[in-house]
Design a protein around this nucleic acid. Sequence first.
DNA 1: GTATATGCAAAGGGTTTGCACGGTT
DNA 2: AACCGTGCAAACCCTTTGCATATAC
Lengths: 147, 147
Amino acid sequence: MTESIKSPQELQAQLRRRGLRLTAQREVVFAAVNELRHATPEQILNAVAEEMPGITLSTVYRVLDVLEQLGLVTHAHMGHAPMTYHAVDEHRHMHVVCEGCGAIESVDAATAEEFARTLSDVTGYDVDVTHMAIAGRCRSCASRSKA
Amino acid sequence: MTESIKSPQELQAQLRRRGLRLTAQREVVFAAVNELRHATPEQILNAVAEEMPGITLSTVYRVLDVLEQLGLVTHAHMGHAPMTYHAVDEHRHMHVVCEGCGAIESVDAATAEEFARTLSDVTGYDVDVTHMAIAGRCRSCASRSKA
DNA sequence: GTATATGCAAAGGGTTTGCACGGTT
DNA sequence: AACCGTGCAAACCCTTTGCATATAC
Protein backbone atom coordinates (compact mmCIF):
# COMPACT_ATOMS: atom_id res chain seq x y z
CA MET A 1 0.00 0.00 0.00
CA THR A 2 1.42 3.31 -1.07
CA GLU A 3 2.37 5.67 1.71
CA SER A 4 0.46 8.27 -0.16
CA ILE A 5 -0.94 10.39 2.59
CA LYS A 6 0.96 13.56 2.14
CA SER A 7 2.21 15.06 5.35
CA PRO A 8 1.12 18.50 6.46
CA GLN A 9 4.60 19.68 5.56
CA GLU A 10 4.25 18.48 2.03
CA LEU A 11 0.83 20.04 1.84
CA GLN A 12 2.23 23.29 3.10
CA ALA A 13 5.02 23.20 0.56
CA GLN A 14 2.50 22.74 -2.24
CA LEU A 15 0.41 25.58 -0.94
CA ARG A 16 3.33 27.94 -0.50
CA ARG A 17 4.37 27.40 -4.06
CA ARG A 18 1.19 29.15 -5.02
CA GLY A 19 1.25 31.77 -2.35
CA LEU A 20 -1.40 29.97 -0.36
CA ARG A 21 -1.43 29.25 3.34
CA LEU A 22 -1.62 26.18 5.43
CA THR A 23 -4.59 26.44 7.72
CA ALA A 24 -6.00 24.05 10.27
CA GLN A 25 -9.05 23.56 8.07
CA ARG A 26 -6.99 22.60 5.05
CA GLU A 27 -4.95 20.21 7.06
CA VAL A 28 -7.94 18.53 8.56
CA VAL A 29 -9.99 18.30 5.39
CA PHE A 30 -7.06 16.92 3.49
CA ALA A 31 -6.56 14.26 6.14
CA ALA A 32 -10.24 13.39 6.03
CA VAL A 33 -10.26 12.90 2.28
CA ASN A 34 -7.34 10.58 2.58
CA GLU A 35 -8.95 8.59 5.33
CA LEU A 36 -12.45 8.40 3.97
CA ARG A 37 -11.26 7.58 0.49
CA HIS A 38 -14.65 8.42 -1.00
CA ALA A 39 -16.68 11.15 0.53
CA THR A 40 -19.15 13.88 -0.23
CA PRO A 41 -18.48 17.37 1.08
CA GLU A 42 -21.09 16.81 3.73
CA GLN A 43 -19.55 13.54 4.87
CA ILE A 44 -16.22 15.26 5.07
CA LEU A 45 -17.78 18.00 7.13
CA ASN A 46 -19.19 15.48 9.54
CA ALA A 47 -15.91 13.67 9.74
CA VAL A 48 -13.96 16.76 10.67
CA ALA A 49 -16.63 18.46 12.76
CA GLU A 50 -15.46 16.90 16.01
CA GLU A 51 -11.87 17.89 15.56
CA MET A 52 -12.73 21.27 14.13
CA PRO A 53 -16.07 22.40 15.56
CA GLY A 54 -16.62 25.71 13.84
CA ILE A 55 -15.92 24.60 10.30
CA THR A 56 -18.62 25.15 7.71
CA LEU A 57 -19.71 23.41 4.57
CA SER A 58 -18.65 26.31 2.40
CA THR A 59 -15.16 26.09 3.80
CA VAL A 60 -15.08 22.40 3.00
CA TYR A 61 -16.08 23.17 -0.57
CA ARG A 62 -13.45 25.84 -0.84
CA VAL A 63 -10.73 23.70 0.65
CA LEU A 64 -11.58 20.85 -1.67
CA ASP A 65 -11.35 23.26 -4.53
CA VAL A 66 -7.88 24.32 -3.54
CA LEU A 67 -6.75 20.76 -3.00
CA GLU A 68 -8.04 19.91 -6.41
CA GLN A 69 -6.12 22.75 -8.00
CA LEU A 70 -3.03 21.47 -6.27
CA GLY A 71 -3.70 18.13 -7.87
CA LEU A 72 -4.08 16.33 -4.57
CA VAL A 73 -7.74 15.52 -4.87
CA THR A 74 -10.36 14.89 -7.55
CA HIS A 75 -14.08 14.65 -7.62
CA ALA A 76 -16.57 12.56 -9.53
CA HIS A 77 -20.22 13.16 -10.23
CA MET A 78 -22.58 10.47 -9.09
CA GLY A 79 -25.83 11.35 -10.81
CA HIS A 80 -28.36 12.78 -8.41
CA ALA A 81 -26.20 12.14 -5.42
CA PRO A 82 -23.71 14.76 -4.34
CA MET A 83 -20.26 14.52 -5.83
CA THR A 84 -17.61 12.51 -4.07
CA TYR A 85 -14.01 13.46 -3.54
CA HIS A 86 -11.02 11.25 -3.20
CA ALA A 87 -7.26 11.54 -3.08
CA VAL A 88 -5.53 11.39 -6.43
CA ASP A 89 -3.14 8.77 -5.27
CA GLU A 90 -5.91 6.23 -5.42
CA HIS A 91 -5.88 4.06 -8.46
CA ARG A 92 -7.90 5.75 -11.13
CA HIS A 93 -11.27 4.21 -10.99
CA MET A 94 -14.77 4.65 -12.24
CA HIS A 95 -17.95 4.45 -10.25
CA VAL A 96 -21.09 2.49 -10.83
CA VAL A 97 -24.02 3.86 -8.84
CA CYS A 98 -27.14 1.96 -8.01
CA GLU A 99 -30.15 3.98 -9.06
CA GLY A 100 -32.17 2.19 -6.42
CA CYS A 101 -30.24 2.57 -3.21
CA GLY A 102 -27.34 4.78 -4.16
CA ALA A 103 -24.70 2.15 -3.45
CA ILE A 104 -21.44 2.86 -5.22
CA GLU A 105 -19.08 0.32 -6.67
CA SER A 106 -15.59 1.25 -7.76
CA VAL A 107 -14.05 -0.32 -10.82
CA ASP A 108 -10.49 0.06 -11.95
CA ALA A 109 -10.19 2.50 -14.81
CA ALA A 110 -8.16 -0.02 -16.75
CA THR A 111 -11.37 -1.95 -17.31
CA ALA A 112 -12.61 0.93 -19.42
CA GLU A 113 -9.41 1.71 -21.22
CA GLU A 114 -10.26 0.14 -24.51
CA PHE A 115 -13.79 1.43 -24.41
CA ALA A 116 -12.54 4.93 -23.69
CA ARG A 117 -10.22 4.75 -26.65
CA THR A 118 -13.05 3.67 -28.91
CA LEU A 119 -15.22 6.47 -27.63
CA SER A 120 -12.49 8.99 -28.23
CA ASP A 121 -12.03 7.72 -31.76
CA VAL A 122 -15.72 7.89 -32.50
CA THR A 123 -16.37 11.29 -30.99
CA GLY A 124 -13.08 13.08 -31.26
CA TYR A 125 -13.48 13.94 -27.62
CA ASP A 126 -10.88 13.47 -24.99
CA VAL A 127 -12.93 11.07 -22.91
CA ASP A 128 -12.68 10.62 -19.15
CA VAL A 129 -14.74 7.68 -17.94
CA THR A 130 -13.90 8.33 -14.33
CA HIS A 131 -15.44 11.75 -14.01
CA MET A 132 -19.04 10.71 -14.11
CA ALA A 133 -20.48 7.60 -12.63
CA ILE A 134 -22.26 4.95 -14.66
CA ALA A 135 -25.80 4.08 -13.71
CA GLY A 136 -26.95 0.65 -12.75
CA ARG A 137 -28.87 -1.42 -10.25
CA CYS A 138 -27.24 -3.47 -7.61
CA ARG A 139 -28.31 -7.06 -7.25
CA SER A 140 -30.81 -6.51 -4.48
CA CYS A 141 -32.39 -3.48 -6.09
CA ALA A 142 -32.50 -5.29 -9.41
CA SER A 143 -34.42 -8.21 -7.97
CA ARG A 144 -36.66 -5.94 -5.96
CA SER A 145 -37.62 -3.96 -9.06
CA LYS A 146 -38.67 -7.08 -10.91
CA ALA A 147 -41.98 -6.51 -9.14
CA MET B 1 -36.89 6.40 -40.86
CA THR B 2 -39.29 4.83 -38.44
CA GLU B 3 -42.70 6.37 -38.31
CA SER B 4 -42.31 6.38 -34.60
CA ILE B 5 -44.12 9.52 -33.63
CA LYS B 6 -47.08 8.17 -31.81
CA SER B 7 -50.32 9.80 -32.71
CA PRO B 8 -52.41 11.58 -30.13
CA GLN B 9 -54.83 8.68 -30.38
CA GLU B 10 -52.19 6.20 -29.41
CA LEU B 11 -51.09 8.46 -26.62
CA GLN B 12 -54.64 8.71 -25.39
CA ALA B 13 -55.02 4.96 -25.48
CA GLN B 14 -51.90 4.52 -23.39
CA LEU B 15 -53.09 7.09 -20.92
CA ARG B 16 -56.56 5.63 -20.64
CA ARG B 17 -55.13 2.26 -19.83
CA ARG B 18 -53.90 3.80 -16.62
CA GLY B 19 -56.90 5.91 -15.92
CA LEU B 20 -55.12 9.04 -17.03
CA ARG B 21 -56.38 11.74 -19.33
CA LEU B 22 -55.28 13.20 -22.58
CA THR B 23 -54.75 16.91 -22.16
CA ALA B 24 -53.55 19.57 -24.53
CA GLN B 25 -50.38 19.93 -22.51
CA ARG B 26 -49.56 16.24 -22.71
CA GLU B 27 -50.20 16.18 -26.39
CA VAL B 28 -48.03 19.19 -27.05
CA VAL B 29 -45.15 18.16 -24.82
CA PHE B 30 -45.13 14.70 -26.29
CA ALA B 31 -44.98 16.15 -29.77
CA ALA B 32 -42.17 18.45 -28.76
CA VAL B 33 -40.06 15.64 -27.35
CA ASN B 34 -40.47 13.74 -30.55
CA GLU B 35 -39.51 16.70 -32.65
CA LEU B 36 -36.63 18.02 -30.61
CA ARG B 37 -35.16 14.57 -30.12
CA HIS B 38 -32.95 15.79 -27.30
CA ALA B 39 -34.20 18.47 -25.04
CA THR B 40 -34.12 19.76 -21.51
CA PRO B 41 -37.39 20.53 -19.76
CA GLU B 42 -36.72 24.18 -20.28
CA GLN B 43 -36.07 23.78 -23.97
CA ILE B 44 -39.29 21.85 -24.23
CA LEU B 45 -41.09 24.61 -22.41
CA ASN B 46 -39.74 27.16 -24.85
CA ALA B 47 -40.67 25.00 -27.78
CA VAL B 48 -44.28 24.62 -26.72
CA ALA B 49 -44.74 28.07 -25.25
CA GLU B 50 -45.98 29.59 -28.46
CA GLU B 51 -48.57 26.95 -29.10
CA MET B 52 -49.54 26.72 -25.47
CA PRO B 53 -48.96 30.10 -23.83
CA GLY B 54 -49.94 29.40 -20.24
CA ILE B 55 -47.94 26.24 -19.73
CA THR B 56 -45.44 26.14 -16.88
CA LEU B 57 -42.18 24.40 -16.25
CA SER B 58 -43.64 22.29 -13.50
CA THR B 59 -46.26 21.01 -15.86
CA VAL B 60 -43.58 20.08 -18.33
CA TYR B 61 -41.78 18.14 -15.63
CA ARG B 62 -44.96 16.38 -14.61
CA VAL B 63 -45.93 15.53 -18.15
CA LEU B 64 -42.47 14.16 -18.86
CA ASP B 65 -42.82 12.08 -15.76
CA VAL B 66 -46.05 10.59 -16.96
CA LEU B 67 -44.70 9.96 -20.44
CA GLU B 68 -41.76 8.24 -18.90
CA GLN B 69 -43.98 5.97 -16.85
CA LEU B 70 -45.84 5.12 -20.00
CA GLY B 71 -42.53 4.12 -21.51
CA LEU B 72 -42.72 6.71 -24.26
CA VAL B 73 -39.85 8.85 -23.11
CA THR B 74 -36.59 8.55 -21.18
CA HIS B 75 -34.16 10.94 -19.68
CA ALA B 76 -30.42 11.01 -19.29
CA HIS B 77 -28.25 12.96 -16.85
CA MET B 78 -25.64 15.14 -18.41
CA GLY B 79 -23.46 16.08 -15.47
CA HIS B 80 -23.98 19.65 -14.37
CA ALA B 81 -26.25 20.42 -17.26
CA PRO B 82 -29.96 19.77 -16.90
CA MET B 83 -31.21 16.36 -17.89
CA THR B 84 -32.32 15.76 -21.42
CA TYR B 85 -35.37 13.85 -22.53
CA HIS B 86 -35.91 11.95 -25.71
CA ALA B 87 -38.42 9.58 -27.21
CA VAL B 88 -37.76 5.93 -26.50
CA ASP B 89 -38.07 5.02 -30.12
CA GLU B 90 -34.70 6.60 -30.76
CA HIS B 91 -31.86 4.22 -31.06
CA ARG B 92 -30.46 3.64 -27.64
CA HIS B 93 -27.48 5.86 -27.35
CA MET B 94 -25.09 7.24 -24.84
CA HIS B 95 -23.95 10.82 -24.48
CA VAL B 96 -20.51 12.28 -24.24
CA VAL B 97 -20.54 15.79 -22.79
CA CYS B 98 -17.81 18.30 -23.16
CA GLU B 99 -16.82 19.63 -19.76
CA GLY B 100 -15.65 22.80 -21.39
CA CYS B 101 -18.53 24.01 -23.51
CA GLY B 102 -21.30 21.56 -22.76
CA ALA B 103 -21.50 20.18 -26.29
CA ILE B 104 -23.12 16.78 -26.42
CA GLU B 105 -22.22 13.96 -28.74
CA SER B 106 -24.45 10.91 -29.12
CA VAL B 107 -22.96 7.50 -29.59
CA ASP B 108 -24.82 4.34 -30.41
CA ALA B 109 -25.27 2.17 -27.38
CA ALA B 110 -23.96 -0.80 -29.30
CA THR B 111 -20.51 0.73 -29.03
CA ALA B 112 -20.66 0.16 -25.32
CA GLU B 113 -22.26 -3.24 -25.34
CA GLU B 114 -19.21 -5.28 -24.59
CA PHE B 115 -17.97 -2.80 -22.05
CA ALA B 116 -21.34 -2.83 -20.31
CA ARG B 117 -21.26 -6.59 -20.13
CA THR B 118 -17.82 -6.52 -18.59
CA LEU B 119 -18.91 -3.95 -16.08
CA SER B 120 -21.92 -6.01 -15.15
CA ASP B 121 -19.76 -9.06 -14.67
CA VAL B 122 -17.31 -7.20 -12.49
CA THR B 123 -19.81 -5.40 -10.32
CA GLY B 124 -22.86 -7.63 -10.34
CA TYR B 125 -24.83 -4.54 -11.21
CA ASP B 126 -27.31 -4.29 -13.99
CA VAL B 127 -25.47 -1.55 -15.84
CA ASP B 128 -27.05 1.09 -18.04
CA VAL B 129 -24.45 3.13 -19.89
CA THR B 130 -27.06 5.35 -21.47
CA HIS B 131 -28.49 6.85 -18.33
CA MET B 132 -25.59 9.06 -17.42
CA ALA B 133 -23.37 10.88 -19.82
CA ILE B 134 -19.65 10.33 -20.06
CA ALA B 135 -17.39 13.29 -19.50
CA GLY B 136 -14.89 14.52 -22.02
CA ARG B 137 -13.53 17.50 -23.85
CA CYS B 138 -14.38 18.30 -27.41
CA ARG B 139 -11.57 19.01 -29.76
CA SER B 140 -11.68 22.77 -29.51
CA CYS B 141 -11.96 22.80 -25.73
CA ALA B 142 -9.19 20.23 -25.49
CA SER B 143 -6.78 22.35 -27.48
CA ARG B 144 -7.81 25.49 -25.67
CA SER B 145 -7.10 23.92 -22.29
CA LYS B 146 -3.60 22.97 -23.32
CA ALA B 147 -2.79 26.52 -22.19
C1' DG C 1 0.91 44.72 8.46
C1' DT C 2 -1.09 42.74 4.57
C1' DA C 3 -3.11 39.46 1.83
C1' DT C 4 -5.43 35.27 2.22
C1' DA C 5 -9.10 32.24 4.61
C1' DT C 6 -12.95 31.64 7.17
C1' DG C 7 -17.78 31.95 8.94
C1' DC C 8 -22.11 33.36 8.10
C1' DA C 9 -25.93 34.10 5.40
C1' DA C 10 -27.87 34.73 1.24
C1' DA C 11 -28.16 33.66 -3.64
C1' DG C 12 -28.24 30.44 -7.33
C1' DG C 13 -29.80 26.66 -10.66
C1' DG C 14 -32.48 22.70 -11.41
C1' DT C 15 -36.19 20.00 -9.74
C1' DT C 16 -40.12 18.88 -6.73
C1' DT C 17 -44.22 19.76 -4.05
C1' DG C 18 -48.71 21.79 -1.85
C1' DC C 19 -52.69 23.80 -2.77
C1' DA C 20 -56.78 25.62 -4.83
C1' DC C 21 -58.83 26.12 -9.25
C1' DG C 22 -60.21 24.34 -13.78
C1' DG C 23 -61.29 20.72 -16.95
C1' DT C 24 -62.56 15.62 -18.14
C1' DT C 25 -65.19 11.85 -17.65
C1' DA D 1 -70.28 14.71 -8.97
C1' DA D 2 -65.66 12.81 -8.64
C1' DC D 3 -61.29 13.11 -9.89
C1' DC D 4 -57.36 14.20 -12.47
C1' DG D 5 -54.37 17.92 -14.19
C1' DT D 6 -52.73 22.52 -14.17
C1' DG D 7 -50.85 27.06 -12.72
C1' DC D 8 -48.72 29.41 -9.26
C1' DA D 9 -45.58 29.91 -5.68
C1' DA D 10 -42.94 28.12 -2.38
C1' DA D 11 -39.79 24.56 -0.92
C1' DC D 12 -35.93 21.62 -1.80
C1' DC D 13 -31.08 20.03 -2.37
C1' DC D 14 -26.52 20.92 -3.55
C1' DT D 15 -23.23 24.30 -4.58
C1' DT D 16 -21.47 28.98 -5.01
C1' DT D 17 -20.78 33.72 -3.65
C1' DG D 18 -20.44 38.40 -1.04
C1' DC D 19 -18.92 40.45 2.76
C1' DA D 20 -16.82 41.49 7.19
C1' DT D 21 -13.79 39.40 10.36
C1' DA D 22 -10.01 36.47 11.74
C1' DT D 23 -5.55 34.40 10.71
C1' DA D 24 -1.15 32.92 8.56
C1' DC D 25 2.75 34.82 6.90
